[in-house]
Simulated scan of single mutants.
Amino acid sequence: MSPGENLDPIPDCFILQPPVFHPVIPYVTTIFGGLHAGKMVMLQGVVPLRAHRFQVDFQCGCSLYPQPDIAIHFNPRFHTTKPHVICNTLHSGRWQREARWPGVALQRGASFLILFLFGNEEVKVSVNGRHFLHYRYRLPLSRVDTLGIFGDILVKAVGFLNISPFVEGSREYPTGYPFLLQSPRLQVPCSRALPQGLWPGQVIIVRGLVLQEPKEFTLSLRDEASRTPVMLRASFTDRTLAWVSPWGFKKLISAPFLFYPQRFFEVLLLCQEGGLKLALNGQPLGSTNLDQQTLERLREVRISGSIQLYCVHY
């Protein structure tokens, strides 16, 4: 990309950001693209043994003064006679009527995984894979653009995720595959074994950052004989995305080219009977045909190209 070249505008829903590892608390960060229905934020960490309370705030801005509105205030409290969780909204400097949930699904000294799933009218919160509460919005979700984490909490990782694009109308927690955060910057090229091949319902997730002067990105699926029945290739030279077979057959994917220098991406491949479906940054982009025997014989997923790699999960 030349210094003066302008990038095509990208809709907010396509702008992703990488996971954050071991942030220093208090921690405040911008949510790229803001919040919208179908987006998720995940926290992994530990509650200190002597924790009193902590809070996770989804804010409308990040100013120190005046204090920004807080659309969703999630506040576990451990130091009271009966530990509980408070949710509330701060609007124009005033707290609204608080909502209280008795009992805390979090424990002092224990690790946790909290998932915030944002729907059209409410946020659902799960703790360690189990639904805990839901809180109805009192301010428009579209105003939220900042995440703040404060108090007695040790955070190992923060992830910004999209709901599975392969389930029409889905607004539930992802059950087909877990979202697990891994250490940043995996070595490229990267190879991962598929000991049992692929089966219907399995999803391969790849997240990364495109380098400043990229050439190509490839995701290859190899069988026991090290053949590549199918490859997904993004060419930055001619800005095309295509399925490529070992016989030289190239099937262009008719969709906007959403790989941009120094921007983050998420590729999902869903295995189903008869082939693979592709989604990029949460948007379904079509499929390619593979018979079931070929899918079951796949033994390796390999990622290479002009990227920094943050996550490979299946």
Score class of each variant (00 low, 15 high):
125 V>S: 04
126 S>N: 11
127 V>W: 00
127 V>G: 04
133 L>T: 06
135 Y>P: 03
136 R>W: 11
137 Y>Q: 06
138 R>W: 03
139 L>V: 02
139 L>C: 03
140 P>T: 07
141 L>E: 02
142 S>I: 08
145 D>P: 03
146 T>S: 12
147 L>H: 02
147 L>F: 07
149 I>M: 04
149 I>H: 00
149 I>A: 03
150 F>C: 05
150 F>Y: 15
152 D>I: 07
152 D>S: 13
153 I>M: 10
154 L>N: 12
154 L>G: 09
155 V>H: 00
158 V>C: 01
159 G>V: 02
160 F>G: 03
160 F>W: 10
160 F>D: 00
162 N>M: 14
163 I>D: 10
163 I>A: 13
164 S>G: 11
166 F>A: 07
166 F>W: 10
166 F>H: 08
167 V>H: 15
169 G>E: 10
170 S>V: 06
170 S>I: 06
175 T>R: 14
177 Y>H: 10
179 F>A: 08
180 L>M: 10
181 L>H: 00
181 L>Y: 00
185 R>S: 09
186 L>F: 03
187 Q>I: 06
189 P>K: 02
189 P>H: 04
191 S>P: 00
196 Q>S: 07
196 Q>N: 09
198 L>Q: 01
199 W>C: 09
201 G>R: 08
203 V>E: 09
205 I>P: 01
207 R>I: 04
207 R>S: 10
208 G>Y: 01
209 L>R: 09
210 V>L: 01
212 Q>E: 15
213 E>R: 15
213 E>N: 13
213 E>H: 13
214 P>V: 04
214 P>Y: 03
216 E>V: 05
216 E>Q: 11
218 T>K: 07
221 L>T: 02
222 R>W: 05
223 D>V: 08
223 D>P: 07
224 E>S: 15
225 A>F: 13
225 A>H: 15
228 T>P: 02
230 V>S: 08
230 V>Y: 03
231 M>V: 12
232 L>C: 06
234 A>P: 03
235 S>N: 14
236 F>P: 01
236 F>S: 03
237 T>R: 15
237 T>D: 13
240 T>P: 06
240 T>K: 12
240 T>L: 11
241 L>S: 05
242 A>I: 07
246 P>M: 09
247 W>A: 14
247 W>Q: 15
248 G>C: 08
249 F>G: 11
250 K>G: 08
251 K>F: 15
251 K>A: 14
254 S>C: 13
255 A>N: 12
255 A>V: 13
256 P>F: 08
256 P>K: 13
258 L>G: 00
258 L>D: 04
259 F>K: 01
260 Y>W: 09
260 Y>E: 10
261 P>A: 05
261 P>Y: 03
262 Q>M: 10
263 R>E: 09
264 F>L: 03
267 V>I: 15
